[in-house]
C-alpha cells in the first residue's frame, strides 16, 4: 500500500504542477504537453519516457488495489461475527473510514478522466484537439456537471491522501512519536495544497479566467 501509494503521490505532484502551467497560457501548456512526449530524444525514441511512466503508474494502481482488496478480505475474515451495536468511531474521522469507498470513487473518476482528457473520446475538443483546448472546452460552464464531478473526486482524493500519507509513514516506521504528529499535520497540509492545485484550473475555466 505504502510503496505503490508513494509512486502515485509522486506522480500527482508532477501532474498538479503540470496543470498549473495552464495559467501561463496556451503556448506554454501545449509545449509542456509536447515536451512530455519528446523528453529524452534523440537518445530514446518519441514517447519512451512517457510510456514508461504510464506502465509504472498502471502497475502501481493495480498493485495498490490488489493490496486494498486483500486487506479488506483479511479484515472480513478476522471478524466473521459482526457487532450488534452500531459502530461508534472513537478515534479518527471521516478520512480514515472512507479509504475503501474513497478509493473506489477515485478509480471511477480515473476511468472518466482518462476518457475525457487523455483519449478525449468524451471531450468536446475530441482526440485531435490541442491539450489546452481540451481543458478549456472540457471544463466550460455548460459542462458544469463535469467540473462538479471533478471537484468531488479530487476532494475525495485529498481525504484519501490525508489519511494515506500519514498511514504510509506509520507503515514504513518513519520518525519517532513527536515527529509523527508533525507528519500528520504535514499530510493534511500537503493534501489541502494538492486539492487546491487540482481544482484551480477547472474553476478558473468555469468562471472564465482561462479561455
Amino acid at each position: 500500500m505504502a510503496v505503490t501509494g508513494a509512486v502515485m503521490v509522486l506522480f500527482l505532484v508532477g501532474h498538479v504542477l503540470g496543470n498549473l502551467k495552464m495559467f501561463s497560457g496556451p503556448q506554454a501548456f501545449n509545449d509542456y504537453a509536447e515536451w512530455l512526449r519528446t523528453v529524452g530524444e534523440p537518445a530514446v525514441p518519441r514517447r519512451t519516457v512517457l510510456t514508461l511512466v504510464e506502465v509504472v503508474l498502471a502497475a502501481a494502481v493495480i498493485l495498490h488495489m490488489w493490496s486494498a482488496i486483500s486487506l479488506a478480505r483479511r479484515a472480513n475474515k478476522a471478524r466473521p461475527v459482526k457487532y450488534a451495536a452500531k459502530r461508534k468511531n472513537q478515534a479518527s474521522g471521516y478520512a480514515t473510514h472512507t479509504m475503501r469507498f474513497g478509493g473506489l470513487i477515485i478509480v471511477l473518476f480515473l476511468v472518466w478522466h482518462l476518457l475525457d482528457l487523455t483519449f478525449a473520446v468524451v471531450n468536446p475538443a475530441g482526440p485531435a484537439g490541442l491539450p489546452y483546448d481540451r481543458m478549456v472546452q472540457g471544463f466550460a460552464l455548460e459542462r458544469w456537471w463535469v467540473t462538479v464531478f471533478y471537484a468531488l473526486s479530487v476532494i475525495m482524493l485529498g481525504l484519501h491522501l490525508r489519511h494515506g500519507l500519514w498511514s504510509a509513514f506509520q507503515t514504513l516506521g518513519v520518525g519517532n512519536a513527536r515527529a509523527r504528529q508533525g507528519l500528520s499535520a504535514g499530510a493534511a497540509v500537503f493534501s489541502l495544497l494538492l486539492v487546491a492545485g487540482f481544482l484551480a484550473v477547472p474553476f478558473a475555466v468555469m468562471i472564465g479566467v482561462l479561455k
Partner: peptide, 30 residues
Amino acid sequence: GFGGCTNTGECTAVCPKGIPLSTIARMNRD
C-alpha cells in the same frame, strides 16, 4: 488470523492503558 493494520487509531482510543500508535510504527521499523 488477525487482520492487517490500516492505522485507523481506534485501538489507541479504546486502550485502557493508552498505548500509543507510535509503538506500531516502531514494530514496523523493527
